[in-house]
Design a protein around this nucleic acid. Structure first.
Lengths: 122, 122, 122, 122
DNA sequence: GTGGTCTAGACCACT
DNA sequence: GTGGTCTAGACCACG
């Protein structure tokens, strides 16, 4: 895994993002049990409280739920996961398009060049 | 302007990037004279030496050239600028596509969703 | 049943309250024989002594009476039960109204909103 | 003030509730500055982190917002406060009505007795 | 001085 | 052993 953080944003936030990606990409599957807080914290070399905060953030977004004494689980509601996937994709596309605009690419040009490039890539 | 830096990469490097964008986007035009180092350093609130290093970097890439006694100028060779534009765009597209792959989007899906989204954007 | 206790008030007191409710609501009927202490204690998972104390409290309030050899019975005096019902209702209403006052509801507002809400409820 | 907690629910939760009441009742007015976390924590005799958690909970519900270096403020949106007031009132009424049902009071009876009692109260 | 974040270490209920 | 809560104490950015 790639537990590396920058100093610009809170660690708990970056942790939440990374785990979100794992859920969305399917590395963590719907309904699956998540490793215990303390174990995750250990792997990421952060304090358990920090990891706890990250996971609670994801619970608030309904991507996780916890059963008191048995552990945490990925949501079984695939819609929630798919919506999150769409939202994040939209954000990435918007950011990408804005950076292309700064380079002077129009909407049409952007589409053309990305199509061309992706076609070329293996 | 947006002279804001992160702590991850050298400031001179980030400065060079920002100026590069200005050249590529046409904000600084081919052949145009560039403001004196000290003035630029002042605007960006950085040490003149740092700005100097940034401009030297751009000279190394032939985007700028300096005339001994009269100052620095943007290259008059539009091909260089266009190539640079293409290079940076390619980089951005590659980064973008990699982040979409992490979300589990295939090449085709990525193209579909970006087309759809850009079409929706006014 | 809902034999759950908080740690703020003596358990025998909470037991007495719960049984009181059962009498008032008619779940235990006037004149009816009450189950043996040990059985009740068992159901509620409390020590028989605690249950004993609860029942004695109810006898003190004349809701129960015991016949030496045959066991405990609910009072046959319906007035006692009805008065108790009124008393408890008054207490609940007072508590409720006080909490509404804390929210800034006047007497009139409280009446209006409760009428409206109860009307809406199926 | 009345900073007293029971052991049944998390302290941060009870803190949030108490402050919510103060906002709803108008003791804290819309747009008003809130005392610093550390001061509030001091008054309530809890750890600043606990008070922080309570306040963040209220921020999540948009009852508070914080300006980085200047402090926390009550929301200026009176609608949010009024909606919260209605929600809590509804909850209280539902709880109250359920406890009356347990006593065997019908909807109509409940309304009659509360009207009568409130009329009697000074 | 303000809110925000993080760590370390502890205790609790539940099973 | 699990998640949840709480405390104590520290450091940071911002202005």
């Amino acid at each position: 895994m790639d537990w590396e953080f920058d100093n610009e944003r809170p660690i708990y936030f970056q942790l939440a993002e990374l785990i979100k990606i794992k859920i969305i990409s399917g590395e963590y599957k719907a309904g699956q049990k998540v490793e215990p807080v303390r174990e995750l914290a250990n792997k990421a070399s952060v304090n358990p409280n920090t990891m706890q905060k990250a996971l609670q953030e994801l619970e608030r977004e309904n991507l996780l739920f916890s059963k008191r004494t048995s552990g945490r689980y990925i949501t079984e509601d695939i819609n929630i996961i798919n919506n999150m996937r769409e939202d994040i994709a939209k954000q990435k596309i918007t950011d990408f398009y804005n950076s292309m605009k700064k380079l002077g690419f129009s909407k049409t040009e952007t589409l053309e060049i990305i199509e061309k490039l992706l076609r070329e890539m293996e």
